[in-house]
Simulated assay, not measured.
Amino acid sequence: MNKILRSFTLFTALSAASVGVHAGNYWTASAQDGWIDGYVEATLLLSGNLDASGIDTDVDDGTVTLRGKVETDIDKALAQELALGVDGVIGVENMLTVFSPGDNDDAAKQRKLTDEKVATVVKTRLMVAPNVTSADIDVNSTKGVVVLQGKVKNDAEKQRATEIATKASDVEKVVNKLSVSE
């Protein structure tokens, strides 16, 4: 009987621990999804060529779902590209509705879309990067070349900004014109 009681007690303790660990994992995943959701929304709002006011986002296990209405096919594609550029995003389900479709076959429009995505992703990453004061950094992208202009506090910040820009997808070259303020 004593052996049965010890086995039952051990089983109960392990079950409770398992539930606690599972709950901790759930809250950790939920917090990460919340962080990703906020980061995606900020990225969409920071894009100068996208009206993100009609876009709703939801994140589940790193997959972003985009819902709402956008004006053109380019806006729909840009929203998806921007969301994919956020750290932690493993996929995007783009359920955006286009109410004024445009011509997506034009290479110049696609290049502009990519340039806007790159500039926005780099600017957003600079904003959340530790040890980089991004308020005085302008980011422009043309044909895969990112140009950083403005002021930073020191040479380490200048180098860190270049590293962040280089790691963004679709970046072929970074031109760092940042100056160090004394």
Rank of each mutant, 00 (worst) to 15 (best):
V21E: 09
K109A: 05
G102T: 01
A77P: 00
L66H: 01
L10K: 13
V174K: 12
K117W: 01
K158F: 00
R6K: 14
G91E: 11
G20D: 03
T57P: 05
L82G: 01
K153E: 15
T57I: 07
G91D: 13
D75H: 13
D75R: 02
R125I: 00
I137A: 06
D136W: 06
V122A: 05
S47H: 03
V139C: 06
A77Q: 13
K112P: 00
L84M: 12
T120R: 00
L46V: 00
G54I: 11
M1E: 07
D115W: 04
G54C: 05
A17M: 13
E157N: 09
P101V: 06
T166L: 14
K109W: 09
D136V: 00
V171C: 06
L96H: 08
S15R: 02
N104D: 11
G85S: 08
G91P: 10
S134T: 09
I90K: 13
G34I: 05
Q149C: 04
K173V: 03
V118L: 01
A16M: 14
P130G: 05
Y39I: 00
T72L: 04
T72C: 03
T57D: 08
A17N: 07
A161Q: 13
S53M: 14
L44Q: 02
T120M: 03
N131A: 12
L96F: 03
Q110W: 08
S30A: 08
R111S: 15
S47L: 00
A77I: 02
